[in-house]
Amino acid sequence: MSVLSLAAVSVQRGSRALLAEVSLEVAAGETVGLVGESGAGKSTLVRVALGLERPHSGTVRWGIDDPWALSTAARRAARARLGAVFQQPAASLNPRRLIGASIGEPLLAHARALSARERQDRVAAALAQVGLPGQFAARWPDALSGGEAQRVALARALILKPALVILDEPTSALDASAAASVLNLMGELTRESGTAFVIVSHDLAAVAYVARRCLVLEAGRLVADGETDALYASATPPALSRLLAARTERFVPLSATR
């Protein structure tokens, strides 16, 4: 079953089409990459998928529900099925809240029946899921490295056990080693958590590391949807070939035997 489906979704900004007739499905437990040049519509697609922006035409579905056919309250409740992680780890955590409180915050909105003790247990479990020790709950965000902050953001995104987590450029603000730690974690989560992930990135190698299926956006249109390695090998459509050509990693990483 699809956890997310878009049918002929279009978004206009003035006379410009930010998204034009985009249709796609993300199956339960699947990991999908989304690549495209700046301005291709990646961020708009993320906002539409998360129900933060209503498309001008077309249908969004979370499972069987159309969020825009629901009441505001019901849409808000249904949003618990989705998690999101954004590019800037520092900016996505409230500096005046302990990490445990930030991670547990979605529970206050969506699982109000839980006791404080149960919330603490869920926070501890979420930290463990992202490979961080339980003591992190009592730390402040400024004490985190970039990689740790991204893990905390993932813990918060996962705490309601969502069907789908969307990650928008989760590694591009991180140094190579911190990015590797987040990609390693992503690898574990995609294999073990049962959650579906959509990873949006201009780092084609990072996308290929975690996602076997890849979508390519160009000027608001979905121009490719297929097996990541096969798409990269074919270097089509043109938007993907330009992204491949512009890759700056001219050296061969030691881990590769190319």
Binding site: D175, A176, S177, A179, A180, S181, L183, N184, G187, L204, A205, A206, A208, Y209, D229, Y232, A233, R247, E249, F251, V252, P253, L254, S255, A256, T257, R258
Partner: peptide, 20 residues
């Protein structure tokens, strides 16, 4: 280690990336 931390574009891929 910093170089090995970058995932390769094409297979084969290591099961885990090196963390420096």
């Amino acid at each position: 280690a910093l170089m090995a931390a970058c995932p390769p574009l094409t297979p084969p891929r290591p099961a885990r990336l090196a963390e420096a």
